[in-house]
Measured scan of single mutants.
Amino acid sequence: DAPDEFRDPLMDTLMTDPVRLPSGTIMDRSIILRHLLNSPTDPFNRQTLTESMLEPVPELKEQIQAWMR
Rank of each mutant, 00 (worst) to 15 (best):
V19M: 09
T41F: 14
G24R: 04
W67G: 07
E55Q: 12
A2P: 15
F44N: 04
E5N: 13
Q47L: 10
R34C: 13
E55I: 14
M68E: 12
R7M: 11
P3C: 08
D8C: 10
M68Y: 12
L33N: 06
D12H: 15
T16L: 14
D42E: 06
T50C: 08
N38E: 13
M68P: 08
Q63R: 15
R69L: 13
W67D: 08
T50M: 10
P56L: 08
D28F: 10
P9R: 07
R29A: 05
F6C: 06
T13K: 08
A2F: 15
A66I: 11
W67E: 07
S30E: 13
A2S: 09
R34Y: 09
R46P: 06
E55R: 11
E62T: 11
Q65W: 14
L49K: 01
F44W: 11
T25H: 13
A66K: 13
T16S: 12
E59W: 14
T41H: 09
A2L: 13
P58G: 07
M27K: 00
T50K: 15
T48A: 14
I26W: 02
L21I: 04
L33A: 08
T13C: 15
T48M: 14
Q47Y: 08
L10W: 10
L33W: 05
F6E: 01
Q63W: 09
P43H: 03
F6N: 01
R69M: 13
R46Y: 14
P9E: 04
R20G: 01
D42P: 03
D4E: 14
S30K: 13
R69E: 15
D8H: 04
D17W: 06
E62L: 13
P40E: 11
A66N: 14
T25S: 09
E62A: 15
I32N: 00
E62S: 11
Q63L: 14
N38M: 15
L14W: 05
M53L: 08
S30C: 13
L49Q: 00
P18T: 01
Q65H: 14
A2E: 07
L36T: 00
R69I: 13
R46M: 14
M15G: 02
S39T: 11
R7Q: 05
G24V: 02
P40G: 12
T25C: 12
D17K: 00
T13W: 08
P56W: 08
D28V: 04
L60E: 01
R69S: 14
D1S: 13
A66P: 00
P56Y: 08
L37I: 12
L21G: 01
Q63A: 15
D28C: 07
T50S: 11
R46S: 15
N38Q: 13
I31E: 04
L36R: 00
D42Y: 04
M11D: 10
L54K: 00
P3V: 04
M68Q: 11
Q47S: 14
I64G: 00
T50R: 09
K61V: 07
T48G: 11
S23V: 01
D28R: 00
L54S: 00
T16Y: 12
T41N: 08
E51I: 13
L37T: 11
Q47I: 08
M27I: 07
L14V: 13
V19D: 00
K61I: 07
L54E: 01
R20A: 05
M68T: 08
Q63V: 10
D28N: 05
Q65F: 13
E59L: 11
N38V: 14
R34K: 14
S52C: 09
P3H: 05
D1R: 14
S30P: 11
V19Y: 05
D1Q: 14
T41E: 08
L10K: 05
P58L: 10
L33M: 14
L33F: 06
V19T: 04
L36F: 06
M27C: 08
E59Y: 11
R46F: 15
P58E: 09
M15W: 02
T50L: 10
R69N: 14
T41Q: 08
D42Q: 00
E51H: 09
V19R: 02
I26N: 01
T41W: 15
R20H: 04
I64M: 03
G24H: 04
P43Y: 03
V19H: 03
S23E: 03
P18L: 04
T50G: 06
E59Q: 10
I64S: 00
P9Q: 06
H35P: 00
L60F: 06
P3Q: 05
S30A: 14
D8S: 02
D42M: 01
R20P: 00
V19W: 06
L14Q: 03
T13F: 07
D17Y: 05
F6V: 02
L10M: 11
P18W: 05
G24C: 06
P9F: 05
P22Y: 03
R29L: 10
D12W: 14
I31H: 08
I32G: 00
A66M: 15
M27S: 02
R7I: 09
M11T: 13
L60K: 02
D8G: 02
T13M: 08
D12C: 15
